[in-house]
Structures are given as C-alpha cells and as structure tokens.
Design a protein around this nucleic acid. Structure first.
Lengths: 243, 243
DNA sequence: TTTATAAACGTCATATTTACGTTTGTTTTT
DNA sequence: AAAAACAAACGTAAATATGACGTTTATAAA
C-alpha cells in the first residue's frame, strides 16, 4: 500500500452479484469483528469501503476498493448517493469500532454499486471473510450500511427497467429465461414467460447465437447475447413520457 | 450566521426555475468577481453552494444554501451526484479565487438540484447578484460548474420522463399546454399537442378544476391540478420493462 | 357581427400489451 | 425403441396505447 494522505471522505461499495445457478441476487459483505479482554464487542457485517486518497478521483477509489476485495477490474460501476448525516455512525458498536480503528466519526461516504457475476469472484483466502448474502436475507449490518444497500437496491430496481444494465449481471451468453429469472429476482415479481420472451426476442440488440445450452437435463435452450453497439444506435433518444 | 466548524466538503445547488411566461427553463447563478490592483482577475458566474457544517446533514446544507439565496424553503430537492476529482478546481482563475477565499482546492462537493418557479424568487437586493440564465444560454462558469449543471440537466431530463417532477416547476393550477411547453423546453423536442393532450387528460391524477385562465387575449384554457395522492395510489409500482 | 386564433375534440391505422392456449424438441425413463 | 416428462418455444385474439393527422369550438378583439 502506498503511503498517502487520506481525506475525511470515504467510498463505500455495494457489490451486487447474480448467481445464475441459484437465481439469487447477492451482496458481497465483509466481516467486522472486534473483541476486548476476551469479550466479543462487535461482530457483524459491513460494506467494503475506504478513504479517498488526496490524489484520487472518487471513481478511482471505488475501482481500487473493488479490486482489493475481488481482484476484478472493469466491472459496471455507478455512483448513486452520498451519505453524510452527522449521526450516521453514532451507535454504540460503531463508536467502539471507530475508536479502535482511529478514524473520524463524521465521515461522509460516497456510495457506489457494482454489478457483476458471483462466479467471477474467487472468495478463497480473502482476508476480510467476504461472503455473498442474498439481498432478501442480509445479516446484521454495521454503520448505516443497511440503508445504503437499500438505496442502492432501489436505484437498481428503477434503472433496470429503463437501461440494459441487467446484462451486466449475466454471462455473455444467456437464455431468455435467464433474463426473466433475473428480472424476477431483482423486482420480486412474476412475469409471463410468453410475453416476456416475445418482447425480448423482438429487440434488435438481443442476438440469437448458433449455440444452445449444454449439460442440461431438459431441452437445451437457445443462447443469446446483448449487443451494446446496436442498442446504442437504436436508443439515441427515446422520449416516451410515461408518468 | 452561527460560528460553526466546517468540513472540507461542500454542497452546490443547481437551482432550476421555470418561467411560465417566457417558457424558459432557467438556472440561478451568482456572480464571482475579484480584482487586484485595479485589474479584474475573475469575473464569471458560479452555482451557489457552501461548506457543510459539522452538525448538518447534507440535505440541511442544501436547504440552507437555497434559503440564503432565495428565501425559499420546502422546494423540491434532489441530491444527484458527488464531484470530487482532484483536478476539479485547478484552473488559473479558480486557484486565484481559492487563495483569496482561503479554502482548500481539494473540496468534494455534493451536488443538488432544486425545481421551483422563477416567479417565486425575489431577486431584488440580493447580495450576490444572483441572476437567472436560460439553460441553453449559460454565461462563463467558474470551477467545474458547467459540468455540474450539465449533469443535473441530464438527470432532470431522464427523471421527468418517468416521475411527475415536472409539476414542481409549474404553478399549482396549470393548463395542458403549460405542461407541454415545459416538456418541450426541458427535452428540446416538439410534441404533438393533440396526442399529448389526450394522454395527459386521461391520467386520473390530472384533475380538471372549475376554473379557466383569466386575462388572456384568446380563448382561456381549462385549468388543471396534479394530485400527488392519486398518483401515489396508482403507481405503487409500474413494472414496465422498457429497455 | 365578424374575424382571428388558441383551445379542444375526433378518427383511423398501427404498435404494444395482456392473458391465455398449444406445439416442439430434448433428455430421461420404461 | 418407444413412451413419458417437461421446459423451451410458438401462436392468437382482445384490449390498450401510440402516432399522425383533420376538424370544431369558444373566446377576445376588431
């Protein structure tokens, strides 16, 4: 680690990963553990984050934090909100933790979320006991990180309806049902398969490959890919007012 | 002004105001002026903003900044992005200004935008020479405020298509054509009046009043209002996937 | 009373959505 | 080799929404 001045500002990262096998939208959390004189004082989970170095952009901090946690670079990243209430880190456990780690309780954090595939992350021998948790079954969370995750999730829900970010959570080659399963996971709704299928297949930027699933125990499904190039050409501007 | 510690974090506010008479979407800017030994060194415009006090939430800072500028409270406010690149305030003029005002060049700013009506703001005897500028005809801007305004505007463009925030820019009682004019101003497009009219009138939350325009030199138009209550009931969730 | 003009209404073709039923192609079982 | 199981894939008809226009109407001003 370079020795570098830090600002009283941090970046926290909500790492969303989709597990295509279990059809589960997960969040990557690290363990926060502190004991004193044999007593466990803090034992919960938090988002991964770090202070912003003086020479860094906020985006660079986020990228660095993700890389240190997962080894991954070039993943979809979105800055979605800054959190800076004076009372955001003032519960008892957090204050003990802050004292131990020697940072300032009034830290403003700029929160990002990442979208990636759980299968791309190797969690073996990671130092922070990083673990995936289903978005609907989160553990006890420290600081105000429950709120941060919730707001990230809300942003994701809204955004996936109007932008093709869903494909960031899927492998390059996917089936129509994969996409439907993912929408259902994120939104918590059921979608009619026949209508969804037709809608998606009719998109110019959803491209059928000369490939099918392999190793499945039922009729193997057609594989598709998403073409960002075609998408960008079509959607210069779609001014549909749908209030 | 209370004497209060400040953090190395500021809030900048993009104040959007719609002038229903000139049909112009405007941004409220203040003058930045500095001379030294008779020479004008800095003379341009900037957003209004201020450092975050240690006791304040970011939202409170934004509210305070708007109040000091316009006297208004309870206006629509949205935190849309944090800007914190190390080089964001490093051009020559900005450095001179920063030196003069004695603040730190590495200031991270959390940017908000407000939506209100120009007519609600009284600009007489305001200290900062605050002036409205049409969004499409902005003056020279200091710091990275041009970029901040552009990003606010992009966010507004996207958001006004899917959320009824447009009514925050209009008086409580408006005509259908007022709404169309505003959409056209914001989006820079032309909309078919007959189709727009039908679409809007069919919304349950657009309520015809027992009132018409007064003092117009043509057939006076029917006045409508927007009902947030009805809107919220209808749009618990509208899961239309429109990627 | 007429005229000018913006407000307001109407129509039709096409596209999209919703709500279902049916067929097909694999793998697995018999 | 045939049958069964089942998800993948296709189909259809009604309802709703959209896009592109033409027409009528109410009011103020002439």
């Amino acid at each position: 680690m370079k020795s570098e001045k830090i600002l009283n500002i941090s970046v926290d990262c909500v790492v969303f990963g989709y597990d295509i096998n279990t059809k589960s939208l997960n969040v990557l959390l690290i363990e926060r553990y502190l004991e004193s004189k044999g007593n466990v004082i803090v034992d919960d989970h938090v988002l991964t984050g770090y202070h912003v170095y003086t020479h860094e952009t906020l985006d660079q901090t986020a990228t660095r934090v993700l890389k240190e946690l997962t080894g991954l670079t070039n993943q979809y990243k979105k800055q979605f909100k800054a959190f800076g209430n004076p009372d955001r880190l003032t519960n008892e456990k957090d204050l003990l933790w802050i004292k131990n780690e020697e940072f300032n309780a009034r830290t403003i954090t700029v929160a990002y979320y990442f979208l990636l595939k759980t299968e791309d992350v190797n969690l073996e021998n990671n130092k922070n006991n990083a673990t995936w948790f289903p978005i609907n079954n989160l553990p006890n969370l420290g600081f105000d990180h429950k709120k941060i995750i919730q707001e990230a999730y809300e942003d994701l829900k809204v955004k996936c309806l109007s932008e093709p970010i869903i494909f960031k959570l899927l492998p390059d080659k996917f089936t129509i049902n994969d996409v439907q399963d993912l929408y259902e996971s994120i939104l918590g709704i059921e979608i009619d398969n026949r209508n969804f299928r037709r809608k998606l297949i009719n998109k110019k930027y959803i491209i059928a490959l000369d490939e099918k699933q392999v190793g499945v125990s039922k009729r193997p499904a057609q594989l598709y890919m998403f073409s960002k190039d075609i998408y960008d050409k079509i959607f210069q501007k779609n001014y549909l007012i749908s209030i």
